[in-house]
Amino acid sequence: MTARTADRTVYLRSHPVLFTLLAATRRRPVLRLGRTVLVHHPEAYREVLTRVPLDRTAGHTTGGAAARLAGGGLLFDQSGPEHRDARRELTTLLGSGGVAALRPLWQRILTEELSGPLRSRPVDLVPVVRRLAGTTAAGLTGSTADPTALALAAEHAAAATARAHLPSLLPRRGDDRRARLAADRLAELLPDPRDAMLAVAAVNTTLAALPRAAAWCARAERWEQARTDPGALAAELLRLTAASPVLPRAAAADAAVLGHRIRRGDRLLLVARHAAEAHRDTPAGDPALATRAPFGLGRHSCPGASLARAQLADLLGALAPHRPRVLRTAADPHSALPAYRRCLLGR
Rank of each mutant, 00 (worst) to 15 (best):
H15G: 01
L21Q: 09
R26Y: 00
R28E: 13
L33G: 10
L33P: 11
L38Q: 06
L38T: 05
V39Y: 12
H40R: 07
H41L: 02
E47I: 11
V48H: 00
R51M: 02
V52R: 04
A65S: 15
A66L: 02
L69V: 09
F76N: 07
E82D: 13
A86P: 00
R88L: 15
L90N: 04
E113P: 04
S115A: 15
G116S: 12
R119M: 12
R121N: 00
V129T: 00
T136H: 03
P147N: 08
A149N: 01
A151E: 04
H156A: 06
A164I: 06
L166P: 00
R173V: 01
R173C: 03
R177H: 14
P191Y: 06
A201T: 14
A213K: 04
A214N: 04
C217A: 15
A218P: 06
A220G: 12
T228H: 14
D229M: 10
P230D: 07
P230K: 07
G231V: 09
A232K: 10
L233F: 10
L233S: 04
A234C: 08
L237K: 01
T241P: 11
S244L: 14
V246S: 01
P248W: 01
R249H: 08
A252W: 02
D266C: 11
L268F: 08
A272E: 08
R273Y: 15
A276T: 08
T282N: 03
D286Q: 09
L289W: 11
R292L: 15
A293I: 11
H300D: 09
G304R: 01
G304W: 02
S306W: 03
S306I: 03
Q311P: 01
L312E: 09
L312V: 12
P321Y: 10
P324E: 07
A330H: 05
